[in-house]
Design a protein around this nucleic acid. Structure first.
Lengths: 148, 148
DNA sequence: TGAATATATATCGTGTACGATTTAATTTTA
DNA sequence: TAAAATTAAATCGTACACGATATATATTCA
């Protein structure tokens, strides 16, 4: 029981610190493009499937309307995406990549790839970590869903 | 190279999602105590070493003054810590746990322990994940420091 | 000692995050 | 079909998170 009480030994803190490091790495790599880290995640989601509704983007990047709405407004102002009411269901809004967003795909990916490689993270630990994180994340999510 | 371009395959996103799940778990477990997750991390830091300066807390929980200052002000208002200018060096501020904070230690730890156990995270994956996260975090931090 | 430098907080601006409420449009159903 | 329920965005309030600047106190050293 006492094992849980020390700051250094808490898994939450290890996740929190690593998340913070990723945030800093991406912030720095994306700065020249005038993009933030969560904004970049939205671009990635749209690259997998352009023209999503805001709600669908939210499901992909796990963000609610209170976060996404102002964020996408900013991305629109910065010329990364466009926003228009769906013709089919005019409650929903369709978000699409601009030409600028499509054209800068390679440059952005390269900047991030370089930043990641500079850290010297090994391929095997990359995938092992992904696997473990996925497992823990799913358990936590499942447990959270069951409570509601 | 193309491996890096999909959202699902990005380590950053796995960390981000897991961090978000921890945040939600702790938020829920700490809600009855009127404590947020980062505030709880500050309490943990003070339990390891009470009477730290704000700067020292910042080093432990990796937060800057722009975040910590208002946070600790809120924690003072909520009766978790006290704040007073150091007698030795009146630039620095000494943060100490209140009786309330000391007395609720067990109750809070129990609430979190229960929430974690409900998820069914195995002990071996807990420690394996800690190890991998620590390794990646250190590499990222080292790389970040070298750039400056 | 007095000016330059360093240090610890405090403050400010921007951008997430999230729960709760509001508004507008669509679907369900009585 | 009209009222009720649902849904998608938008808005609001609170709380991080961080870089930059300001302020007050200490320290250094010419």
């Amino acid at each position: 029981m006492n094992d849980y009480l020390s700051l250094d030994q808490q898994l939450c803190f290890a996740v929190y610190e690593t998340s913070s490091e990723f945030n800093k790495l991406y912030t720095k790599a994306l700065e020249p493009f005038n993009l933030t880290y969560p904004q970049y995640l939205v671009l990635l989601a749209l690259r997998e499937n352009d023209g999503l509704a805001q709600k669908e983007i939210g499901e992909k990047v796990r963000l609610g309307t209170g976060t996404l709405n102002p964020m996408i407004t900013r991305m629109t102002a910065n010329g990364w995406v466009t926003k228009e009411r769906s013709t089919g269901d005019s409650r929903s809004v369709v978000i699409s990549l601009t030409e600028k967003a499509k054209n800068s795909k390679r440059d952005i990916a390269l900047a991030i790839k370089e930043a990641i490689e500079r850290c010297g993270i090994q391929s095997n630990e990359y995938f092992e970590l992904m696997k473990l994180l996925g497992s823990v994340r799913d358990k936590m999510k499942k447990s959270r869903m069951e409570q509601a």
